[in-house]
Amino acid sequence: MDELQIYLVSALVSAAIWTLPAAAISLIYGVLRYPNFAIPEFMTLGAYLALLLCGFSVPLWLSALLAAVLTGLIALAVDQTIFRFVRAAGTLPPVLLSLGLMLFLQNGVRFIWGNDVHQYPIELARPFVFAGFIVTPTQAAMIGAVAVILVFGIAALRWTSFGRAVRATSTNPELAVVTGIRPEVVYGGIIFASGFLAAIGGVALATETSLTPLLGWRVLIPLFAVAILGGLGSATGAALAALLLATVSEFSLLLLPVTYKTALAFLVLALVLLVRPTGLIRTGGIER
């Protein structure tokens, strides 16, 4: 087994973890036009909800799915009770709300589960070798699940009527309304999807590391770097950017200490915005 292959596997794992939450940030940005700093906390919440379900001997995959649905519903409830009222007030109010929500959720998790480190009850299984790459069964399952959800998501954006409504709303909200699309339905759907995607990402991250209240916060910078690098509003872009950033940051380990991975993500983010202050690729409109 080469070092190269170890790095590539780590990169793929990181990319799989980042893709869905980054896509959630990207989607919200594309449709509702604000950066949502609470997405990483929905990751944390989702991961802990899955832990809770695991406690009732529900298998992890099913726990993750149920936790994701629950997290989506919670995100939707918060949106409808609070964020909804500042829809017409520009970028800043929802940004501030998302900061308050970040503080609330992170400490809500801390209140219920404490600061202790938790683990999913995953049996240690022997890693298997696939074409020279060493992968654990959990990693393989996680990467596969993320890939399936990503493909489903992209397909839904492309071919379903809801997907078309999302793209229309993000490109031109006024026109979308004229054509009979109800924006609040689109917003609600996007918020639910974001909570769902974030929770799956949270469970994925927790299988690789462990559950702490800071689980999601730790990846906030990489997620935003990925979302911006992928061109805010694009799910495919997010996936590609996640792969790119993950590869770069894995290979940076040859030069930098491991704790600088996040710092590197910030530098990538800053560099992109320095070169293109209006964002990469484009800012208007959801892409598939």
Binding site: V86, L92, L97, L103, F104, Q106, N107, G108, R110, N115
Partner: peptide, 26 residues
């Protein structure tokens, strides 16, 4: 102690959200 600290920050987060919602709301 941990829970009390968490409650404090939850209260602050909630307060921040309420201020924003009132200040920028309809």
């Amino acid at each position: 102690g941990v829970q009390l600290a968490a409650l404090r920050l939850m209260a602050l987060g909630l307060a921040l959200m309420i201020i924003v919602a009132v200040r920028y709301g309809p």
